[in-house]
Design a protein around this nucleic acid. Structure first.
Lengths: 206, 206, 206, 206
DNA sequence: ATGTAAGCGAGACGGTACGTCACGTCTTCAC
DNA sequence: GTGAAGACGTGACGTACCGTCTCGCTTACAT
């Protein structure tokens, strides 16, 4: 079964290697000059492709970047059960550290977030993706911990994910400093204590 | 008598109302279009001033923004002793929340951080200011808590400040969601437990 | 039975109605936009035909136009003997007027001549055709006039044809004004006197 | 008295050497690629000038070319009295030959004439200029000849100018052949006989 | 009071990118 | 093999900004 549509007949087809080259160039341009100075002209030049080939696919640099975003956030990560809340937390912290340390995330993410403050479409796409990932991870960790009896069901999932993502993003992307050895253990231990304490206080999750 | 006297000789003088109008326009432009799209032309237009008047004062938009930054970060905040680590933490969390919720911080900070990834001068200025503030606050909180016997001297100050700034920045500036009532209490309680736990483990601060 | 049969073998054949439609479209395009703006794309569009069908027949717009030219200039015109040089001249002037007044000549000829200044192939084709026609007509008129004793054999044929074609082309194609009634008579009378005078002077034809 | 306007105040001024460089480039482009392929981009490139500098002066290539035309056709030529119609004619024929043989005229004129067939503004400008020149020359030659008694006042001025301009334009610009030595004498002699004959016939000028 | 150096506005200039259009070439498909 | 469809690279369009620079006018100090 040919993947390629059977439409009109004898129709020329968007060449996928060109699409790929352009999206790749977008990533590189984004990290070098930012979204504000990103230009279709520059992307086309860098991709070794004609401007018209770019405009045939997307009407603006916004659509281009949104498609790139969609492609990037759609990947799911598997999180095996490590046997304890502490170990699960360490695993998540390690993974997130690695992701945020990646040059792409370090260079492109702050830029998209800054642009999201001005562009509702970017904000929506970006936040939806982050929130989905956070909810998945939060639910998984909490349900395992509750099953193990490590946490009560009342635990505030939002606080948990803020405590995981916040410090790492702050340290890596904002302060642009490295995560020292042992930081993951220390942080996950702190998070575990914090959420256990918070869930004990009986403060109703907001 | 004139404050501005003693210049070379027979010199016309930079009109201060123009300087002020331009800096004001820079702030508004920054929050509307970001650093990437910020232009001297746009700033001059918005300030109702000729481009040459701007370029006479700063050689580039970078110098302009750096001067603006320097003026903004030099303010010190007083942190009265609230009597307990928990209360001190709540105070700091409240203050930081208020600062980050301010439209200026919400709109301009992400943009400058994104640009800092590409511009060493911005990175240096910005990070120096943030780190100084963090160190001040961290030292103050920890020394009081150690005096009160709430924390051992071994507590990791960096982890502490990451745990304060990270979740708030993540929630407010990254996710652009509001801080719900009670969040400050919950977060400060969590932070207190976390740092106490971390300092108990005897993990050497990195 | 098929009119187009007997080609190589199992081979599809250039459909003549497409060839005709294209050439027809070339003429219309030429007179509307000129040679400079003439494009295979435009011709194909106007002919309701795919670009590839055109390019399979000619490699460029130049070949296309040259084929068109060759087809047009190959027609011979009969010039009956009118009995006197004056009458013969009037006939030729009338015929040439009619030809030059034709919209096709008025619109396309100046364009091809302009292009000939830049394109040797067009120049060659065009000038060869014009010169052949001029020589034919000149020889015919002169030989009849010499036979009648109206002109000596020394008459300068080039001057004659310049005096016929020049004023008419100037008035019709350059100045784009109409030929008023009586102009043909007046012009042919003038030409007759002129060539008779010129041949009397004994100036050797150059 | 400063030629330069006293307008707004402190206003920057179109630099005349740029205007000149552009117009010069227009001439060269026109003769190389013709009006159809003339592009503002190409002109600016050839003039070593920014496209914006061109568009600041003219809104389109048409305006540009029209200004060029106006500048070119406004020159008046002095025609001293040579003492006889024959000598006057020879002088005019010589001058016109020289003008038409000039590369500018040979390359640019046919192109503008071809474009005039499609563009009323070019047609108007061009024909007005040509007709004015023709009328001036015609009137001058005829009035002198009438004063001398060489021609009756009834002579048809249009026929005269057609007989001068037509053969020369045909030979030089259309056929692109050279004017042989003696051609000017031969032609002027022919023209003199022709107009004398035409004016004798009593044919009313149309 | 006057000379003069600087401030200031206006805007021309060389650039770059915009998003669109048109074109010649080339590939793919249906017939 | 023919013809249709259309993707592709190229290049020009006319516009919009931008940073630089030059130019008059104005201002305010120093003589």
């Amino acid at each position: 079964m040919a993947d390629r549509a059977r439409e009109p007949a004898g129709a020329a087809v968007r060449r996928p290697e060109i699409t790929a080259a352009v999206l790749d160039a977008v990533v590189r341009e984004l990290s070098e000059v930012g979204f504000g100075r990103l230009s279709v002209e520059g992307v086309a030049r860098r991709a070794g492709v004609a401007k018209s080939a770019v405009y045939r696919r997307w009407n603006s640099k916004l659509e281009m970047v949104l498609e790139l975003l969609s492609g990037m956030v759609s990947r799911r990560i598997s999180l095996p059960d490590k046997g304890s809340l502490q170990a699960d937390l360490t695993m998540v912290v390690d993974i997130l550290s690695t992701v945020l340390e990646h040059p792409m995330a370090k260079n492109v993410l702050p830029d998209l977030l800054a642009e999201a403050a001005r562009n509702p479409q970017i904000e929506t796409t970006l936040h939806a993706a982050i929130q989905a990932a956070q909810r998945d991870v939060g639910d998984l960790l909490v349900s395992r911990a509750v099953d193990r009896g490590e946490l009560p069901g009342t635990v505030d999932r939002e606080l948990l994910t803020d405590l995981i993502a916040g410090p790492l993003y702050w340290r890596i992307s904002v302060m642009r400093s490295h995560v020292p050895p042992g930081y993951a253990d220390q942080l996950s231990e702190a998070i575990r204590c914090a959420v256990q304490a918070a869930s004990r206080t009986g403060l109703a999750p907001h």
